[in-house]
Design a protein around this nucleic acid. Structure first.
Lengths: 140, 140
DNA sequence: TACGGCGGTATCCGATCGGAAACCAGCCAT
DNA sequence: ATGGCTGGTTTCCGATCGGATACCGCCGTA
């Protein structure tokens, strides 16, 4: 029987990340606001309920390569939005990434941006299509 | 009291854009939020008080090349955030770019993001420096 | 001993970004 | 007719982004 290491480390058990928390059909690139690089906003979201491990983050960020994840994490770390915490004391290798106070604060305007996008989703799609149609018949 | 003379065209005399409205020392790239490409947020800001001409926009966007400005404008147009209005009736060539309703709405979350950045400016700088210093002595 | 999981690096590559510079047509005033 | 202004386009180029792939040491388990 496998014993959860979380207990040994006195760690609180949190729900695992939903592998489908990011809809591949309407991914964040369509959100007109961006924070950092391609993956950064999603990483921030993943960390909002507490620290997560490298391999834990890879799950909802479907298809991300180790390199890209490392890069994004380092970038967010350099900006001071998250902290890398390496546990040496434990029995096995464990590295966790946690939002700093600054990073947590970043979630507010990020939420606002996402909310705006949700509210104007139809308009966004419609405007894009109209502009595309206009480009075909209009000034071309 | 001075009277605007261009009102027959429905055009109101507005203050010209401040050539230094974007501080080259703390430019928007330091803002962790972005809208579209490098120049897009600044262009949106330039248009918030009404339509502007191509050459008018070039002034505060110091050093922007024609190509980059055209690119950014086309991108924002494709997204439905602004509209290109070419005046054929007039005597001289005149092209104006104006925010759409959607684009104007975009200013709200953009303001929120800028406001957040202003509020946390010191922390942002400090966190960056701390992370940089930590990288030198820390996990290396 | 071998194997698998973890948390990465190193290298290569094609795509994209964005600036520099040259060029252009139409209109205007001199 | 000549030069200047407007609103671009085109070409070239170096830098950066981001994915694919291969590889790595460390640890725990079988």
């Amino acid at each position: 029987m496998k014993k959860p290491q979380a207990e040994r480390a006195g760690r609180v058990e949190r729900a695992p990340l939903d592998p489908e928390m990011f809809d591949p059909v309407c991914p964040s690139p369509l959100v007109p606001f961006r924070v950092g690089d391609k993956w950064a906003p999603m990483i921030l979201r993943c960390l909002q309920d507490g620290p997560r491990r490298f391999s834990e983050l890879k799950i909802p960020l479907r298809g991300i390569t180790s390199k890209s994840l490392t890069q994004s994490l380092r970038g967010l770390e350099r900006a001071g939005f998250l902290a890398r915490e390496e546990q040496h004391g434990g029995t096995e290798r464990r590295v966790e990434y946690a939002l700093t106070a600054l990073g947590r604060g970043l979630l507010d305007p990020l939420d606002a941006a996402c909310e705006w996008t949700r509210e104007h989703w139809d308009e966004l799609i419609e405007a894009q299509e109209a502009a595309l149609a206009g480009a075909e018949s209009g000034h071309r």
